[in-house]
Amino acid sequence: MNIFRLLGDLSHILAIIILLLKIWKTRSCAGISGKSQILFATVYTMRYLDLVTTYISAYNTFMKVIFIATSYATVFLIYVKCKATYDHNHDTFRIEFLILPTLVLALLINHEFTIMEVLWTFSIYLESVAILPQLFLVSKTGEAESITSHYLFALGSYRGLYLLNWLYRFYAEDHYDLIAIIAGLVQTVLYCDFFYLYITKVLKGKKLQLPA
């Protein structure tokens, strides 16, 4: 564990808490893509199957359980509890266009052709693009509430911090995992446009509004 990974994990958990609190407090999931949240719940389920086979540390187990539980809670809030406020007219990204290619890629490019390893790889590839329905929704409506922007910023920072973690581990521990690194790079790049708008607008107190 190094500082970058810890900060990355904290930023990841912060993003999830921001989103859950926003929906819970306002009893509204307007502006939130339920499809992205379904993809994230899929990602954690596929990746953390090793909870039952491999013990790494108490921290690792605790965080995995939290990620799985909170991702399902978020999906439940959007599709059941706050269903009336769900923006389904704008949340129209076809997730099969993300699921199928990442699944095929995971079958083709993986560390080892076993069920657990292919599913782990699938989760890594799928996570890298899972935010696209959310970014698509924001681009369709042309704006995002500040709280949604904070959520996206925390979520984008998480993989960015992991990139620093991987750089650190490469030099300090002679350890690297190309699948995670390349997917993490793709994931971080997808947020770049948003990061720019967040820094130039949201941090100056303005609402995130896309140029017409």
């Binding site: 994990d9 790494i56 995995k64 560390h111 080892e112 002679d174 995992d177 995670a180």
Partner: peptide, 10 residues
């Protein structure tokens, strides 16, 4: 390359 098996990151 040292394989990440088990995967120790989140």
């Amino acid at each position: 390359q040292k394989l990440q098996a088990p995967h120790d990151e989140l």
